[in-house]
């Protein structure tokens, strides 16, 4: 897909810094993500990528700087309030509800769209049933979209890792996000699971959801990203299209290495298959 340079900024980080006691995890990071793009954040282990997503989604407070989502300042808001601006996410280490089935896991993703309060729920049986039915139907749709309908009554612990990752992705889709953060979605997947997952990410993107991605797998990153920001030791060292990033000497030195350039051609979105 052609990168639209004129499109609107949907996520903006302005001079964001995060310090853990004496350690500066993220330093003065600024970036802009455009609407209808897949924007990737890459860097070596410990570069601060997950810290950035955790700050954007409100799980970590910022030490300094500001974050905007569609002109709304979200830095300083609580995690659940940020999610309510239709920012959804998955986690680097799976965070599924182990005592719930796949479908129940997915249904919790829609809680904020259930408008019936507790007291009306206690007394208005009809409306409670209607809301429950709507939630069930939506969960079934998402299960079908992701391809998990066969496993809807299974418990996560009894499923392969790839399916667990898909369950988490499905839960994040229940929120009907406009912006989805994926934290290393392909980590731990075997090659066929990875291809399946990338196909689903593309399907999600094509359904109208913008994606902010952290990933170590360069095949995935270079093939599906529109824009890439590279960080090292918490600071931005490069940004641009996949082609520009692959040619950037700083990125090659800090992260990709010379071998990557020799072994891979130019990027651009294409199917991994």
């Amino acid at each position: 897909m052609e990168n639209n340079k004129e499109s609107k900024t949907i996520l903006e980080l302005k001079n964001v810094t995060k310090r853990f006691a004496g350690l500066v995890a993220v330093k003065d990071l600024s970036l802009k993500m455009k609407e209808r793009t897949i924007h990737s954040l890459i860097g070596p282990n410990g570069a601060g990528k997950s810290t950035v997503i955790n700050m954007i989604t409100g799980l970590l407070p910022l030490t300094d700087g500001e974050i905007y989502h569609r002109d709304t300042k979200i830095s300083g808001m609580k995690a659940y309030q940020i999610a309510q601006t239709r920012c959804s996410r998955t986690f680097q280490n799976l965070k599924l509800y182990r005592s719930m089935t796949v479908k129940e896991n997915i249904m919790t993703g829609m809680m904020m769209d259930m408008h019936q309060g507790f007291l009306p729920f206690m007394f208005d049986f009809k409306k409670a049933r209607q809301e429950d039915k709507a939630m069930n139907e939506k969960a079934d749709l998402i299960l079908k979209f992701i391809g998990l309908q066969e496993l809807s009554n299974e418990y996560p612990a009894n499923m392969p890792y790839g399916k667990q990752k898909l369950t988490e992705l499905a839960r994040s889709l229940m929120l009907e996000p406009s912006l989805l953060f994926l934290d290393e979605p392909a980590a731990g997947l075997n090659p066929s699971e990875r291809v399946e997952f990338v196909d689903i990410i593309m399907k999600v993107f094509e359904s109208g959801i913008d994606i902010f991605l952290i990933e170590h797998n360069m095949d995935v990153i270079m093939n599906i990203s529109d824009d890439i920001t590279v960080i090292n030791f918490g600071s931005k060292i490069a940004e641009g299209t996949p082609e520009q990033i692959q040619e950037d000497p700083l990125v090659i030195e800090a992260y990709l290495g010379d071998r990557y350039k020799k072994e891979h051609g130019k990027g651009g979105r294409k199917c991994l298959k």
Binding site: Y80, R89, F91, M111, M112
Partner: peptide, 9 residues
Amino acid sequence: EAINASGVN
């Protein structure tokens, strides 16, 4: 953390 990230207080 997960339920919080789903927009639930």
